[in-house]
Design a protein around this nucleic acid. Sequence first.
DNA 1: CATCGTTCAAAACATACGTTTCAAACATAC
DNA 2: GTATGTTTGAAACGTATGTTTTGAACGATG
Lengths: 212, 212
Amino acid sequence: MAQAGTVDRILDTAEVLFAQKGFAETSLRAITSKAGVNLAAVNYHFGSKESLVQAVFERFLTPFCAALDAKLDEMEASGVPDTPENILGIMSRLVLGSHPEDPQRAAIFFRLSGQAYSQPQGHLREYLHQQYGAVFRRLQDHMQRAVPDVPPRELFWRVQFSLGATIFTLSGLESLKDISRNDFNMDVTEADITQRLLPFLVGGIKAPVPVI
Amino acid sequence: MAQAGTVDRILDTAEVLFAQKGFAETSLRAITSKAGVNLAAVNYHFGSKESLVQAVFERFLTPFCAALDAKLDEMEASGVPDTPENILGIMSRLVLGSHPEDPQRAAIFFRLSGQAYSQPQGHLREYLHQQYGAVFRRLQDHMQRAVPDVPPRELFWRVQFSLGATIFTLSGLESLKDISRNDFNMDVTEADITQRLLPFLVGGIKAPVPVI
DNA sequence: CATCGTTCAAAACATACGTTTCAAACATAC
DNA sequence: GTATGTTTGAAACGTATGTTTTGAACGATG
């Protein structure tokens, strides 16, 4: 099992480079040379570059969704009420605390998610939605109980808006950090942003529904 | 000036293909062959592929920002009060109505914006921010007057969140249309989304600021 | 009509990419 | 120790890319 080192080194390097430069802009040669493995190793272990991309996402999302499921179980068991604040709080604590040993990991997570969502063809997006749609729907159900006055169809879009605001902001955080440093003399971290995001999202989700 | 036809055919085709498949995934050969011009025409008229990308954005954003500036002038002159609803309403009407002869144009606009923002290296993002930062700041000033209780630094991020929710959602609208059709038996248009977006964004921007 | 700057077309160029090949190194089982 | 299946290493393959070159066609100017 000496190849385990190879496979993990490829995944570790690929996830960083994909987040930094995008999928198309990251060559297998860049990955393998930085990982210190042979060029052919990717095709040998993963079959193709596209499968590598999927593998990177699986290694990220499978544990994350499992943890989210567990947290939701815990929430239901302990009788914590369904409120937007509680649900979004669970999410943000999970994301920020998922890899406490490596704080940059959360940033990578969001950059990768942003890449996947803005991928024009969207086949990765659909793959993710079908692979992890169950957890997403469970989250949406809890949110529905939190704001029963918002019609389900309206809430669906509001959750999408929330996703957008979150991923979009945290995925492009590097540029925004510079702007905020120049314009407001303010240094900012991922945790700061999520703290500011929470009331914004709650306000949006609880907003009155216009009568059309 | 017979080349005007060539230049515009290139821009027309490039903007569609870029929106459909992304920058890196769209080759100059795909553009030129679909546009019915010679391969060398891009490098002759624009210098390089990267300059083509910038030219596509300039042709989009320069008139848009000019129109936005005019609308803000008009708003200030007519004494319409600064409220989040009014400001965001101007934006959405502007985006949706900017090319009434081609309703798909708005979708292309957002897909391109999403591409630019999620571009990992972010050099396009910075270019846009420095090129059109003035209008952005003006918009932000109006919003500040609309919600004077929100501290400027907080508002900066809330505007970013709003941008994220908007661009992110409307940039990936094709996939979301399918989901919403399957899960809610609901057909949806760009105008529908912006109508749902407005109260969400207003709720987020006006949300109470937590005491930290 | 001749000339000059501009635009177009076809071809070639150099390079980078994902992938495949094949033999050597390795680990494991008999 | 030999044989077998697995993993690595170096090289090559085929292809697609952005870019450059060269010369012809065109249109205005003198």
